[in-house]
């Protein structure tokens, strides 16, 4: 079954046409990477998929349901099946680590607050952090640790579809590798579909089954991750080889 379908999405801000007819689909259990340079519309596309922005034209289908045609309550129920790791983790800084991880489960009444600590403990172990971090606040953690806690929060509700927005941005190569491995391991163990938005090619090759290259608001190239090196498109080649040229193609 198709977990996510993006159909002919258009979005402009004033005279700037950010997305111009984007089409994508992600099957259940599949891992799609959306690659693209800075400012190509990746984050706008993600916000539209999640329903935070309305497209000018086009539709988003989650498990066959058009998200623009569902009620607020239906949308919230659908969101419980979705996990999201934000670029800067977006942990609630007024809550402790365990409260952050258990937040969704408590809010959706899957567990009661008293069970939250033990619930969060399981996920902290899954992401390789010590249980002593559970009582700390996000501001007490390093960037890499925050990212891992963000990942724990994203997987805590056992989602069927997980979004990763620039998961390795701002991290050192070792931490990037660790985050990629954790993403891969947890997504596979959940048998979830995933969409990773990144401009980090190494990371994309580690976590993706399929890649879509976004350029000037359009999907320029789409295919299996193993085939991207053989792609002949000039912009994709430029992106892959990280060539510095006077003009971006």
């Amino acid at each position: 079954m198709i977990a996510l379908e993006v159909k002919n999405i258009w979005k402009s801000f004033g005279s700037k046409h950010v997305l111009q007819g984007v089409n994508l689909s992600v099957m259940e259990g599949e891992s799609l990477v959306i690659l693209g340079g800075s400012g190509c519309g990746k984050s706008v596309l993600l916000r539209i998929i999640l329903g935070m922005l309305k497209p000018d034209k086009g539709s988003i289908f989650l498990w066959g349901k058009d998200i623009s045609a569902i009620s607020d309550a239906e949308r919230r129920a659908l969101m419980i099946k979705i996990g999201m790791l934000f670029q800067h983790s977006a942990l609630f800084d007024s809550l402790t680590v365990w409260e952050n991880i258990a937040f969704g489960a408590i809010a959706s009444k899957k567990i009661i607050r008293k069970e939250g600590y033990d619930f969060a403990k399981k996920f902290v172990e899954k992401i390789g952090l010590d249980v002593s971090v559970l009582s700390l606040f996000p501001t007490d953690l390093s960037g890499g640790m925050q990212k891992r806690v963000g990942l724990a929060r994203a997987i805590a509700q056992q989602p069927s579809l997980i979004f990763f927005d620039e998961p390795t941005t701002g991290l050192d190569p070792l931490m990037c590798r660790l985050i990629d491995d954790l993403i891969l391991h947890n997504v596979r163990s959940l048998k979830a579909a995933s969409v990773t938005i990144t401009h980090d090619l190494i990371s994309a090759k580690r976590v993706g089954d399929r890649v879509a290259m976004l350029y000037e608001g359009r999907i320029l190239w789409e295919g299996a991750i193993d085939h991207i090196d053989a792609c002949k498109d000039p912009y994709v080649r430029q992106f892959l080889e990280a060539r510095c040229v006077d003009k971006v193609l």
Binding site: R47, L50, G51, M52, R75, R76, A77, L78, M79, I80, I82, G83, M84, F86, Q87, H88, A90, L91, F92, D93, F103, G104, A107, S108, Q157, F163
Partner: peptide, 12 residues
């Protein structure tokens, strides 16, 4: 810092 967006994605 996207914390309000995080609430949205959790259906809250």
């Amino acid at each position: 810092s996207d914390q309000i967006s995080a609430l949205w994605t959790m259906g809250v």
